[in-house]
Amino acid sequence: MKRNKNLIKRRESNRRYPLRKCKKPDCQEYFVPSDSRQIYCGEQHRIDFNNDKRKLKEAINIFFLKTVKSNRAILNKIKSSNFYKENGYSTKFLLDHEGYDFSTYHRIIINKKTGREAHVCYDYALELIDAKEEFFSINNTLDYEL
């Protein structure tokens, strides 16, 4: 026997709760909740709030990935340049000039040969080789001795 969805009545509580203000930031409405857990004045405001929260998290991830991809392209460009091939290092000035973001990387590893830390960006590791002169080496992480 099929039930008609229109005939099914939703159960309602006999309890009465005090007025509450909707938790959606741009809604100033007060409502009478039908359940003690209800914090939004309606289903659509709950959905909107959670969608906005998810978008914010995704925006942070998108910004991180965009910055890391940019860093990778910069390291690839510098490593394949004639200056880097001749000298075996890059200057901080050149990295800054190209727009490299030193605060964004995937992880930090320690080079077992030198004992220095290197910031990993995809398949490149950027290692400070001379702090006074601010020289950096760019190594492929596949060839890196960890």
Results as ranks from 00 to 15, higher is better:
Lys92Thr: 07
Ser103Thr: 12
Ile108His: 07
Lys112Thr: 08
Ser90Trp: 08
Ser103Glu: 14
Arg116Ala: 04
Thr91Met: 05
Tyr124Lys: 15
Tyr105Lys: 06
Leu95Lys: 03
Thr104Leu: 05
Asn111His: 11
Val120Trp: 07
Glu117Gly: 01
Tyr105Ser: 04
Leu94Met: 10
Ile108Thr: 13
Tyr89Gly: 02
Thr104Glu: 08
Lys92His: 05
Gly99Phe: 03
Asn87His: 10
Val120Thr: 10
His97Pro: 00
Ser90Pro: 01
Tyr100Trp: 06
Asp96Trp: 02
Ala118Arg: 08
Lys112Glu: 00
Asn111Gln: 06
Gly115Ala: 05
His106Met: 13
Lys112Gly: 00
Phe102Met: 06
Leu94Cys: 09
His97Val: 00
Tyr124Glu: 14
Ala118Thr: 05
Asp123Met: 08
Asp96Pro: 02
Asn87Ile: 08
Cys121Gln: 06
Ile108Met: 10
Glu98Gly: 01
Ile110Asp: 00
Tyr124Val: 11
Gly99Cys: 04
Thr104Phe: 11
Thr114Gln: 14
Asp101Ser: 10
Ile110Ser: 14
Lys113Arg: 14
Gly115His: 04
Glu86Thr: 06
Asp101Thr: 07
Gly115Gln: 03
Gly99Gln: 03
Glu117Lys: 12
Asp96Thr: 08
Lys113Tyr: 12
Ala118Val: 07
Ile110His: 14
His97Trp: 08
Leu94Pro: 09
Gly99Val: 06
Ile108Cys: 07
Cys121Pro: 07
Tyr124Cys: 12
Phe93Met: 04
Ser103Ile: 11
Thr91Gly: 00
His97Phe: 09
Glu98Arg: 15
Gly88Ala: 05
Ala118Gly: 13
Asp101Val: 05
Cys121His: 04
Ala118Leu: 10
Asn111Ser: 07
Glu98Pro: 01
Tyr122Trp: 06
Lys85Cys: 01
Gly115Ile: 04
Tyr122Ser: 10
Lys112His: 14
Tyr100Asp: 00
His119Met: 11
Glu86Asn: 08
Asp96Leu: 09
Tyr89Leu: 01
Tyr89Phe: 13
Thr91Ile: 01
His119Phe: 09
Ser103Asp: 10
Ser103Val: 13
Lys92Phe: 11
Cys121Phe: 15
Tyr122Val: 04
Tyr122Ala: 07
Cys121Lys: 01
Ser90Arg: 08
Leu95Glu: 04
Asp101Asn: 14
Lys92Trp: 07
Arg116Gln: 12
Asn87Pro: 02
Tyr122Lys: 00
His106Arg: 13
Thr114Asp: 15
Lys113Phe: 08
Phe93Ser: 03
Phe93Cys: 00
Gly115Trp: 03
Glu98Ile: 05
Gly99Ile: 05
Gly99Asp: 01
Ile110Val: 09
Lys112Cys: 02
Asp101Cys: 05
Leu95Phe: 04
Ser103Gln: 12
